[in-house]
Amino acid sequence: MDNTRPIGFFDSGVGGISVLRRSVEILPMENYIYYGDSKNAPYGTKDVDTIRRLTSEGIDLLVDRGCKAVVVACNTATSAAIDYIRDKYVSIPVIGIEPALKPAVESTEDGKILVLATPRTLTERKFHALMESVARTREIIKMPLPGLVEIIEKGDFDEEKSFEYLQEALGDVDKNVRAVVLGCTHYPFVKQSILRILGDEVSVYDGSDGTARRLARILADRALLNPGPERGTIEILNSLGTPEILELSRYLLQKGT
């Protein structure tokens, strides 16, 4: 087994780069291949069968490139397709992501919790099971944000367009909200706009850190860690294939949240 083989990251577009960044911070010696399916973004408004097919095609590409593990760095794809992908690829670790509802509950004593996610993520049984298991005593406000992924995919996360969208969507949010869970990997790139609207006293959580740490544990448990010590490589691929989307992807990798 060649432990220098890359770790594959898949997302419906550029959002999963927020998870990739955290993984690179924790596992800098690893090699990575990131594949974003921006051609078919967003996934959050598609039916389950379509999401499963597109996710499977993306994972196929990463496995064909020799990846030793795969991270489904997309909440919608995880909700709709993770079980299918794990059944298909039993020989390699497949790590998904879920909204960071548990950390939000454990880190705040009272108040409401606002979950921002795609329509598909919020309706899937995996999210409702998560709410039932970790948030029985807290009031959860579920808010889909259709259209926000498209704004971020166009690189408008730093512009007034994304702020105006969020201001309209979040302007009437209950003032008793104490925590915000970013249930889409695209949304960390507009975190500052969310705080600008809701106030800095609101705590914001996303699943990047938990997913990256779980990846590290699984690789260690399976003796798959790259021994290093050199810093690994990062290859960015995208189904859209335009210079603009690849430039945006590299910018987000450097920018962070």
Rank of each mutant, 00 (worst) to 15 (best):
D209P: 00
D156T: 00
E244F: 02
E132W: 03
E244H: 13
R250H: 14
A212L: 04
L122S: 04
I17V: 14
L215Y: 13
R53D: 14
Q167N: 14
A41M: 15
R138G: 02
R213P: 01
D49G: 06
L101E: 04
L54R: 15
I85T: 07
A104T: 04
G111C: 07
T4L: 10
N226E: 13
F127P: 02
G36I: 05
A216C: 08
T211D: 02
V19Y: 03
A100Q: 08
D209L: 11
V177K: 10
L182K: 13
R65G: 05
K255A: 11
G171N: 08
D11M: 07
A216Q: 13
D172A: 13
V71W: 08
S239G: 01
G232M: 03
P42A: 08
K46I: 05
P144V: 06
T123F: 12
A41F: 07
S23G: 10
L224Q: 10
I82Y: 01
G13F: 02
V204Q: 08
I140D: 04
K39I: 03
V90G: 00
E153F: 12
P227C: 08
R21Q: 13
L61D: 06
A73G: 10
V24Q: 00
P146N: 10
E244A: 15
P146R: 10
D87C: 03
G15C: 07
K126H: 10
L198E: 06
E235K: 10
Y35W: 14
E160L: 13
I97C: 11
D37R: 03
H186A: 09
A216F: 00
D206L: 06
G207I: 02
V71A: 10
I85H: 04
D37W: 09
A169I: 13
E109S: 12
T78K: 04
K154H: 10
L237W: 07
S12W: 04
Y187L: 06
T121R: 06
G199L: 07
T242K: 06
L253P: 01
M1D: 11
I218G: 00
I236E: 00
F157W: 12
L148W: 09
T137A: 14
E159N: 12
N75L: 05
D60T: 02
Y35I: 11
R21C: 12
V70C: 07
Y165S: 09
G232N: 08
A169F: 04
L253F: 13
Y89H: 14
L225F: 05
P243N: 13
V14T: 14
T76G: 09
L122V: 02
L27F: 04
G36P: 08
E153L: 12
E247G: 01
E201I: 08
P42N: 04
T108K: 05
R125S: 14
P103I: 07
L130N: 07
F163C: 03
A169H: 11
T78G: 02
Y251N: 09
G228M: 07
L215V: 05
R178N: 15
S249G: 15
G15Q: 09
V71I: 14
V181R: 03
R86T: 01
K68W: 03
M143A: 04
N176V: 05
